[in-house]
């Protein structure tokens, strides 16, 4: 079967094309849609919903806020039934901010309840750099079976994950912290290994079903060995970004 991926765009989305290209490379059929030209029911035609990186609506009213609001007010019912039918949702960078601000992540006490946030980096700056990430024990479909440290690039100004202690505690308990910033040996990093000052080194989180993944790092920027910043020194065979997206596509092909 063809795995159908929807790349949802809005004004200011800017990682849509390479994200679509990466999913095509994983064997999916990709459609790009602008949220203003799409009826919520059309979501039923897809199995993976992707919110790519960018600065939707200029990040006015907060990073991802307005797109989150549009999803909450117009797409709520359809998204709930999309998840219910086993569909996968991926939010990268600005897309992660959108998922947190809609309340789809972490989703501890049901969806569309905001429990966490992503705020300005502790450095006060936009930063583009490659980081080491440690996949944690979760049921996240996109990360299934990936158990060693890998690298991906981050590029953002507002990636610092914050939530009340109780939420963080529960996320840890229930295995919803999907990715942590780390040193190459797996030990906890300071800055810049943790590029934004995220609490508990959180880089990406999943929901209780494991169907939703939101992360600040960009998987679509590491789908070829030449993307890696040290490819003239070492050719890395494990293309972490490709592997993450491919797991989503393969899961849909097998299970839906």
């Amino acid at each position: 079967m063809r795995v159908k991926v929807l790349i949802l765009r809005a004004a200011g989305t800017n990682c849509d094309l390479e994200t679509g290209f990466a999913f095509e490379k994983c064997g999916a059929e990709v459609t790009f849609r602008h949220i203003w030209t799409m009826a919520p029911e059309e979501l039923r035609n897809y199995q993976i919903l992707v919110l790519p990186g960018g600065f939707t609506y200029g990040d006015y009213l907060g990073a991802g806020t307005i797109l989150a609001h549009e999803l909450r007010t117009r797409f709520q019912e359809e998204i709930l039934s999309f998840i219910d039918k086993g569909g996968l949702i991926l939010g990268v960078c600005n897309g992660f901010q959108v998922l947190v601000k809609t309340g789809l992540l972490p989703g501890l006490s049901g969806y569309f309840r905001v429990e966490a946030t992503l705020v300005e980096n502790e450095s006060g700056r936009f930063e583009d750099r490659w980081v080491y990430l440690r996949p944690e024990k979760t049921n996240c479909i996109f990360l299934k079976g990936i158990d060693s440290v890998f690298e991906l690039p981050v590029a953002h100004a507002e990636g610092r994950f914050l939530a009340p202690d109780a939420v963080i505690h529960k996320m840890r308990e229930e295995g919803m912290v999907a990715l942590r910033y780390t040193n190459s040996d797996g030990s906890p990093p300071g800055y810049p290994g943790n590029p934004n000052g995220s609490i508990d080194d959180i880089a990406g989180i999943t929901d209780p079903t494991g169907q939703i993944l939101g992360l600040m790092p960009h998987p679509e920027r590491f789908i070829d060995p030449f993307h890696h910043p040290r490819h003239t020194r070492e050719m890395i065979g494990f293309l972490a970004g490709y592997e993450i997206l491919k797991r989503g596509v393969d899961y849909v092909r097998k299970n839906l």
């Binding site: 800017n14 390479e18 936009f126 583009d128 750099r129 490659w130 590029a155 040290r230 003239t232 020194r233």
Partner: peptide, 23 residues
């Protein structure tokens, strides 16, 4: 300066402005 710029968006930057063992 370089790190404040998103020099990798579009996923086409193959030799980056910062290179080497510690990038």
């Amino acid at each position: 300066i370089i790190r404040q710029y998103d020099h990798e968006v579009q996923a086409r930057t193959i030799v980056k402005p910062l290179v080497g063992r510690c990038c």
